[in-house]
């Protein structure tokens, strides 16, 4: 066990060393995703990203001023340099200034944040609704008024690989821990309302690319919405501790153009019974794997 661990650690260490020695070039390829919040694919997610960068830069500037003054003083006002201590000990003017300025800065941050928040909480005018139910440990998606409904669990490959000492090379698993059997399929350019709830304990549905994270609470329904601009596959995870397999109930959303989505939906309705059978079969497989 420990030798497998050591070799994995060793591999990582050399990977890290190579990345470092190749310098910025190799790092830059992954830097966007690894270091910062994704910009995302909704208007809201872009606003959130901008707010994030705004407050980040504000903190950097304040930090530069405060730490700058502190470091200057550490360098210039040290006893070993012969600095004699001054004896001022307060100044009402200065104190009012440094109470007022942060206050103004905070207002400048809070106002745009409030605007975005109000937009995010406005679920009115949605063109379609999907009810999402969290279970220990899977998601159920029900397309309201469409009679389509299915469960979404961690993909089998990941599930095998994640067992203790499975011996599976994780690099060989597609999207390790971020893949499911039945992804949620939705249309782009459509305001989609999600109705979130849970059957047992609290879960939270999170897809960073949509800047959507909302708790799924048993007995209550929370609403949120998204309008996706670009077709693609988007991944996220359950974000509220929900017990043993909290780390193993990912969210995968496939956004298709409205036409493709309609085709998919029609196929679902046709294959509804068959698909349900498949979902049950998968569940059993998962149970067997454990």
């Amino acid at each position: 066990m420990s030798s497998a661990f050591m070799s994995r650690a060793g591999a990582l260490m050399s990977k890290l060393a190579i990345a470092a020695s190749l310098g910025m070039v190799s790092q830059a390829a992954t830097a966007e995703y690894a270091l910062n919040m994704p910009v995302g694919v909704t208007e809201i997610s872009r606003e959130v990203y901008d707010l994030h960068m705004l407050v980040f830069y504000v903190c950097c500037v304040i930090g530069a001023v405060v730490f700058g003054a502190m470091i200057y003083s550490i360098i210039a006002h040290r006893k070993s340099k012969g600095a004699k201590a001054a004896n001022f000990h307060h100044s009402t003017v200065v104190e009012i200034v440094w109470t007022a300025i942060p206050f103004v800065i905070l207002m400048a941050l809070a106002l745009p944040a409030a605007k975005t928040l109000v937009k995010m909480e406005n679920t009115r005018g949605a063109e379609m609704s999907i009810k999402v139910t969290g279970y220990q440990w899977k998601w159920q998606y029900e397309y309201i008024d469409e009679d389509v409904s299915f469960y979404s669990t961690l993909s089998q490959d990941s599930n095998f690989a994640r067992q203790k000492n499975s011996g599976v090379d994780l690099e060989s698993v597609d999207n390790y821990l971020l893949d499911v059997d039945n992804p949620l399929v939705v249309p782009t350019d459509t305001k989609i309302r999600l109705l979130l709830t849970a059957a047992d304990v609290i879960h939270a549905w999170w897809v960073p690319d949509f800047a959507v994270k909302k708790d799924a609470i048993p007995g209550y329904i929370n609403e949120t919405w998204m309008q996706i601009d670009e077709p693609g596959t988007y991944r996220g995870q359950c974000a509220e501790l929900c017990g043993r397999d909290h780390g193993f109930m990912p969210v995968v959303v496939i956004a298709k153009t409205p036409e493709e989505y309609q085709a998919w939906l029609a196929a679902q309705k046709g294959a509804e019974s068959a698909l349900n059978g498949a979902a049950i079969a998968t569940e059993q497989n998962v149970a067997l794997a454990q």
Partner: peptide, 10 residues
């Protein structure tokens, strides 16, 4: 409030 869905669905 915004809990119509809670009441209707659950």
């Amino acid at each position: 409030g915004n809990n119509l869905a809670t009441n209707l669905f659950l």
